[in-house]
Amino acid sequence: MKRLMKVISRMVFLLLLVWIPLSCQLPLSSSQKLEQLTKTITVRVFRADEANRLGGSGVLIDRSNNQYWVITNDHVVFDRKLSYKIQTFDGRTYPVQIVSPSPSPKENDLALLTFKTDTPSYSVLTLKASPKMLKEESVLAGGFPFFDDFHQAQDFHFTQGKLMMVLDEPFLGGYQIGYTNLLRNGMSGGPVVNQKGELLGINGMAQDPLLGNPYIFPDGKTVSEKAWQQVSQLSWAISVQTIRDFVQQHYLNPSL
């Protein structure tokens, strides 16, 4: 009888060893799900020769069978003489074609890319028309930043912050959304999303500009010295509505 009890006790102990770790695996929090979503729809954009002087990020916005479309900033791929590639979240790389022409100085700082793949299937983040934007709502900004040695990160990075301003009239380049998230070089073209996982815009202008005055409106006017103190402390993104209008000019898809 004692021997039987020992066997039963040992079996119960072994079952507990298996059950306890499983029971401690908590489900992903909403913030973790948001980070995972943002990671899967963000790509790294870089030169095909893999020189690290140029590069940035982009967002997967649409697909048709095995063809995908990516939105990024034009300044990420401004040299049209070069060839570019993208890297998806699973580490695969693909050559891309730039669909949109180079913009004039007064046009939006946007570029549309496309690539094809016959193997995996990637998620895309639909360009929802005019998602509601609330002042001081929490937003996540993601991308592939450069490090101090000028090498671009191979892994996705993100920063948390708050949306602070939405201009009635955007600055040159289409920059309209101001937010507190810290941006680094290489995060241009990456997504800015709200807590619902909706795309609000794409990164493109970091805080505290070192050269020149980027806060100029299309009519040539600029912000006051007082306003400069405020806007220069924010990062700036191009809104999803501006992106929708741009994409529809170069890629006619009724779903966008």
Rank of each mutant, 00 (worst) to 15 (best):
M1N: 14
R3M: 04
R3H: 01
L4R: 07
M5N: 11
M5K: 15
K6Q: 06
K6W: 01
S9G: 08
F13W: 00
V18C: 07
W19D: 09
W19V: 15
W19Q: 12
P27V: 00
P27K: 04
S30C: 06
S31R: 14
S31Y: 02
Q32A: 15
Q36A: 09
T38M: 14
T40F: 01
R44K: 13
V45D: 07
N52R: 05
R53A: 12
L54E: 14
G55Q: 12
G58C: 03
V59D: 12
R63K: 11
N65Y: 03
Q67N: 12
W69H: 06
W69P: 05
N73R: 02
N73F: 03
D74T: 10
D74S: 15
H75V: 09
F78M: 11
D79M: 06
D79K: 01
Y84V: 08
D90A: 06
D90F: 04
T93Q: 09
Q97E: 11
I98V: 10
I98R: 11
V99M: 08
S100M: 04
S100R: 06
S102T: 12
N108T: 11
D109C: 06
T114Y: 00
F115H: 08
K116H: 06
D118W: 00
D118K: 01
T119I: 12
L125R: 04
S130H: 14
S130F: 10
M133T: 04
M133Y: 00
V139E: 10
V139P: 14
A141Q: 11
F144R: 08
F147P: 03
F147W: 07
F147S: 15
D149K: 01
D149I: 11
A153F: 10
A153N: 15
D155N: 04
F156A: 15
F158V: 15
T159P: 01
T159S: 14
L163F: 06
V166L: 09
D168L: 07
E169C: 06
F171W: 02
G173T: 09
G174H: 04
G174F: 00
Y175R: 02
Q176P: 01
Q176C: 02
G178W: 00
T180N: 03
N181I: 02
R184L: 12
R184D: 09
G186Q: 08
G189W: 02
G189N: 06
G190F: 06
G190T: 10
G190L: 13
V192H: 03
V192Y: 02
L199T: 04
L200Q: 03
G201F: 02
G204F: 00
Q207T: 01
P209W: 05
G212R: 14
G212Y: 14
Y215K: 05
P218R: 00
K221V: 10
V223E: 05
K226A: 02
A227E: 07
Q230T: 15
S235E: 03
S235I: 02
W236H: 07
Q241R: 13
T242R: 10
D245H: 11
D245T: 15
V247S: 06
Q248K: 13
L252W: 08
L252C: 12
N253F: 03
P254R: 07
L256M: 10
